[in-house]
Each structure stands twice: as C-alpha cells, then as structure tokens.
Design a binder for these strands. Structure first.
Lengths: 373, 373
DNA sequence: CTAATTAATTTGTTCATATAAGTTATTCTA
DNA sequence: TAGAATAACTTATATGAACAAATTAATTAG
C-alpha cells in the first residue's frame, strides 16, 4: 500500500478533495511533482496515469495536467435513490460509543436509511480517508465525532469541501472550533463542576483530577474542576492535576496515581475526579493493590455513567452522559437537515440549532465522607 | 495509432475479439510479448495496462495476465464502483460484538468497501427487513450473525434467495443448520469442555452451569460441560444446570443463583461455569451480597475472554474468543467470495472453507481449589 | 502592431536496467 | 507419501535516459 506512486497519487487526490485543485485547474507539472516528492518521472506518470484512468484528472499534451470536473459524474456512481448516512466516530467498539451509535443507528434504520460506520481510532489519517470516501461516493449526510478535537485539525479543508458540496454534517460529543458546526454535545464543563462539587460538598479538600488533554472534553471537564474549587473557596494544588494523551491512557494515569499513593501519607489526596468511567475502573486496581478502602480511605468519581459503573464490587458515582439519546437526537437533526436540503430552504428553525445536554450527578457507593472528618 | 504500444494493444485486442483468447485464459507473458513484437517491456506494459484499464484483461501478480470475462460487463462496471458489504449482527453495541465488527470493518474499509451495519436486536422481523433490503438494493456480500440460531428460522427462504441471486454470505459465531453456509465460528463445545475440565481438574465436583438456550452456542457449550463430566467420571446433578432465554438474561440467572446460594449449605456448589463473561459479571454481585470469597468459597469461570474479565476486583478466568480476528477472517473470506464471483469459478479452495477457531483457557484469579480439599 | 519564428515547457513514447513480491511446479526431506 | 524448501517464472515498482510532439510564451522580422 505504501508504494511511492501511491503516495503521490493519494497526495494529488487529497488536493482535489480538499478543494486545492478546482475543476479544470492546471495541477503541478510532472517535473515539479518529481522535485516535490523526490521520485522519478516514471513514478509520477504512474500516479497521474491512475488518476486519469479513474476520472480524477485529464492530460493535454504540451499544455499540462488538469483537474477533472466530477460534478456531473457523481450522479452516475451514486446509488440512485438509496439513502445513505455515514457515522464517523473515534471508536465503534469501545466504552460508550456503541451506545451512542446504537441510538443513531436505530433511528436512521427505522427511517429507511443505510448507516455506514467508520472508526478513526483517533487518527487523523483515517479521518481523512473516510471524508474522502464520503466526498467521492454518495452520502446524504454525516454524523461525526471529531478526532482529537483539542488539537487543530489538518482535515479542515475536507469539512469545508463538505459544505461546498452541500453535504450536511453534525458533530457529536465535541466539535472543531474553527468550523462552528451544528453539534450535539454534553455540557462538559458543568459535568466537571458537578463531579468536583459533589466531592467538595462531602468535605474533600484535596482532590486529585485526571483529565485527557487531546480532545476538547478533557480541558472543559478540567475547567469545571477548577471552577468548583473557586466557587467553594478551596485552594487548588497544581500537583493534583494530572493530564494525559489518548495514547498514554493505559499507562500514565495508572503510574502517576501509584506514585502519588506511595508518596508521603499526609499529602495523600482524599478523593479522585476522573475523566471517565473507563479510567476510573483502571485506577481502581491501583487503589486495591494498596489495600485502601473505597470510599472510606479514598473517594473516586467517574464520568459518563456508563455500564462500567456497575461491573465492579464498588459501584461508581458518575456523571450522566446521554449516550444513545445523543445518538438519536443527532440522527433526527441529520434527517431534518437532509429533508431541508431537498425542500430547499424551508427550515424548521428548531431543528437546525445545536443541542447541549445537561449533565446529572448519579451517586453510588464510590464516594463518601473523607476519613478524618 | 502508429505507436508501438498501440500496435501491441490492437493485436491483443484482436485475439480477444476473434476468440483466440477465451475468458480467464492466460495470455502471453510480458517477456513473450517483448519477443513477439520486438519491443521493450515498458511498451508491453503500457499496452497491457491500457487493456486492463478498459476491462479487457486482468493481471495477477506472479501468475500472469488473463483475458477478462466481459459477458456481464454492464453489470460489472456499474457494480464495481460501489463495493458494498453488509454486516448483520444481533447487537452492534454490546459486549464482544463491537470487537468482532471492528475486525471486519477495518479490513473491509482498507479494501475500499462500504460497510453497512444492521443490528437485529435478536428479532426475526428485523432480520427479515434487512434481508429484504439486501435483496432489493445492491450489496456485494453479507456477513451475518444469525438471530436466535438455536430456533428454526422463519427467514430461511430469504437466505435461499441470496444464493439464487448469487449474493455471497458468511455466517459468524453460529449458523443455521438447514443452510450449511460458509461459516466462521468458535468451537463452542470444546470451549465448554475446557471451561468445565479446568474446574474439575482443580478438584471441583459440584459445578453449576449457566447456559443460554436460544442461540446455538449455548447448547454446544452445555454439551462440552456434560462431556467434561463424563470424561472425568463425575456424576451430573441435573439441578446444577440452569438455562435461560435472551429475554431473561438480566433476571432469571441472577434469581436462580440467589435461590441456590440461599439453599442448604451442604448442597451448595463449589464452582460455576458461565455462558459468557457478561453473565459472570452479573452473577458476581449475587456472590458478593452473600459475602462469599472468590475463589476460596466459590470458583467462577466466564467465556469469551472479553474486556469484562479485567474490570472487577476479581479477574475472571475465561475462554478465549477470537473476536476481532473472527471479524477479519470473515471479511477476508467475504472478499475472496466476491472476487470469485466476478472471475467466475476460478476458486482458491482455501478461501472457500469454513473456519472453526480453537478456544483456549485463560486462567486468572476467579478460579481456585475447592474449600474442603 | 502583427505575424512568423524561436525557445522553453509539458506531455507522449520508447529503451535499458534493477530489485521486489507473488505463484507455480519441482525437488528434496523426514 | 505428505510437507517443506527451492527454483523458475510472472507481474509490480522504481530509476535513468533519450527523443518526439504539442503547447505556450517570448522574441524577432515585416
């Protein structure tokens, strides 16, 4: 798959799909491409030749190579009257994503739509691949959970091209600030606030916070954590905040917590606020190994109120995430955008506004009064 | 028209049109063509490459270049662009299904296929609806996890119609006996056997077994449970076997176990073999409520070796299910069936046989020696 | 200023060479 | 005799070089 000519081919294709090359615009000459990619002319010709054969480009001897106009052609490759909606999420198989997807899938399916699922595994390259597919083939709309939403996105041009091609999209869980899309989210800041406030109201003052930092939910939940401290006039110990990237989620938080628990006992925090339930379950093992009792020795609170709150001997206090409801609302909005497109403008204003779900605290047995109180 | 590669091209085309080259017949190799026409390899490749692009020939690396079958050409070209595969499972969002689906989805996606997901929620009516959709709209193939595979299926005719319409399908996890389809399964009987044998070898003789009875995996796992008893000369107490339907999975096993544990202490079983990890996690709570220690007071073993083995304070001994690997293998087989259909008959025999995965025992801390041994 | 010529650029065709990777048939081995 | 190892063959990818043919821009001649 990673042949040189394929790399060149994909690079050119990307520039067509993200709108850098407009129809009938001249693209770089063969010698320029040779320099750009450091390959031989033959390799360039292979790449361009393939794209010509597939209708992406056309060549004119002596003049150059040009971007083809695919606007009419798309009709042919489209699936006719088939109704397709794509759902792109970071994961389809882990944690609460299945629930979110089910909510959307059930609704769309009932309305007679085909649902195609793609998971990016939190990788921008995959996200780009899927956006290319959606731009190339016929889709009526896309429900997207952004990949690494806290980091600036290299595929912004693809989203803009979706707008140009009049393909509606909705973002769920998070959104890219640059785009200001229609979005269905949870009020993560308030969720973080509720989480921490719950612990503070129980009497905790030394609260460890674990937050992911490469999606936009993490920083927002952390903001809520900080706000709750300020609102209750409690000083924040900077060393009580641990952040981690998605790639490190299985190691860093666990080893960091271990280090803290093995540190001087006096400085040991009495409670932990976690980015989500998945992390909470992982941290439980660290606490168990040290034979600390939950919640007597230490309180811990999750986020998302997933099925994981219920699988362990300690039932987790958590913050309710709408999950399948979020998926369903996204699906409903999507379909009203689709029908809007067809009925050209007649808009139910209600349907075209973003939704922010209100988080709720769900108290179970993992949180309690601090020990020395 | 005077170019060398064009002369070669026309010559080959003539031989196809006058019947010298029949569909799927190997044409002269590149080196032979070089000699025949006295041109360079590159020129030959240009000529052949053009014919491949226009659907006259197809190449197979290592094997040769072959004459394409253009009889159904109209269908093939319009169909070739779309590349749709459907995956129908009972659930898309629960338990190990997401992993299975991910395995298939990742592979199919890489190969440029659209993946459409449908979940029947274990309901035959939904299954029928989706099969209708697949029969009416264009799909290249279907990967199906049967709904209620132990019960006779009212949609058999739809499956037969798939065969009639030459739409390949593969069944995963289980299959309907009446159809004898290509299937990718786990050796459930052996899995059940390993489960129970492990407990017997630890010294347990009074082993409670919980098995689902409306899919075909349940009875097979139960058969393994029985076989293990016989193989080790241990009597089976009929009241030690609990079966349940999918609809009752949240209630019946839990209440049945509660009743047994609250019964006379002497007759209390020392070990439990469970249909899957999901059930095991549910039963853990019943055991915890009675303050019994696992594995000292009672051993418990799961099935599927899912992520659930690791979420509780007790790490579950379980039986390994291939999960994402199963999905990937199913996807690979599916695509070789699809390409077989197009190249009409030329079969890689290896690709067209069912696969039965071998289960493995994974020992963790939920099983141990019986108390009074 | 216009038209013809020329130079530079760009794609089109062809050759020679080399290594990689997959398939098939044969040989060798246990 | 079954299965592993190998050799021979086939297509796949890649580089370098050369000349042809068409277009475009710049220059020159009228």
């Amino acid at each position: 798959m990673q042949t040189k000519y394929n790399i060149v081919k994909q690079a050119i294709k990307s520039k067509i799909l993200d709108g850098t090359f407009q129809p009938h615009q001249k693209i770089s000459s063969e010698s320029e491409l040779m320099k750009q990619f450091g390959v031989s002319r033959h390799t360039v010709r292979l790449a361009v030749g393939d794209l010509v054969n597939n209708g992406w480009l056309y060549r004119e001897q002596g003049a150059g190579t040009f971007c083809a106009d695919r606007t009419q052609e798309n009709n042919n490759t489209s699936v006719g009257n088939q109704k397709n909606i794509a759902i792109i999420t970071t994961y389809i198989s882990d944690y609460i994503f299945p629930s979110i997807i089910r909510g959307a899938e059930t609704y769309l399916s009932q309305q007679g739509y085909h649902v195609s699922l793609f998971s990016t595994n939190n990788d921008h390259d995959n996200e780009r691949r899927f956006l290319e597919k959606i731009l190339t083939q016929h889709f009526d709309g896309v429900i997207i959970e952004p990949t690494k939403s806290a980091i600036s996105n290299p595929n912004i041009n693809y989203y803009l091209n979706l707008e140009r091609q009049n393909i509606p999209y909705i973002m769920i869980n998070a959104y890219y600030d640059e785009l200001e899309p229609l979005s269905i989210t949870l009020d993560d800041e308030k969720g973080g606030f509720l989480q921490t406030e719950h612990l503070i109201e129980l009497g905790h003052k030394d609260i460890l916070g674990f937050f992911k930092n490469d999606d936009s939910q993490g920083p927002k939940r952390m903001k809520g954590y900080l706000k709750a401290h300020r609102a209750h006039g409690i000083d924040i110990n900077p060393s009580n905040i641990v952040t981690y990237k998605t790639e490190d989620k299985y190691d860093k938080p666990v080893s960091d917590l271990a280090a803290i628990l093995d540190g001087p006992e006096g400085k040991r925090p009495t409670a932990i606020a976690c980015y989500n339930d998945e992390l909470t379950i992982a941290l439980l093992d660290v606490i168990r190994e040290r034979e600390l009792n939950i919640p007597k020795d230490i309180s811990i609170i999750g986020f998302d109120n997933s099925f994981l709150t219920n699988v362990s001997e300690v039932k987790l206090t958590s913050i309710k995430h709408p999950q399948s409801e979020m998926g369903e609302v996204a699906a409903q909005k999507m379909l009203s955008m689709v029908s809007n497109k067809h009925s050209n403008g007649k808009s139910n204003k209600n349907d075209l506004t973003s939704v922010v779900f209100d988080p709720e605290l769900v108290v179970r047995s993992s949180t309690g009064l601090p020990k020395n109180k």
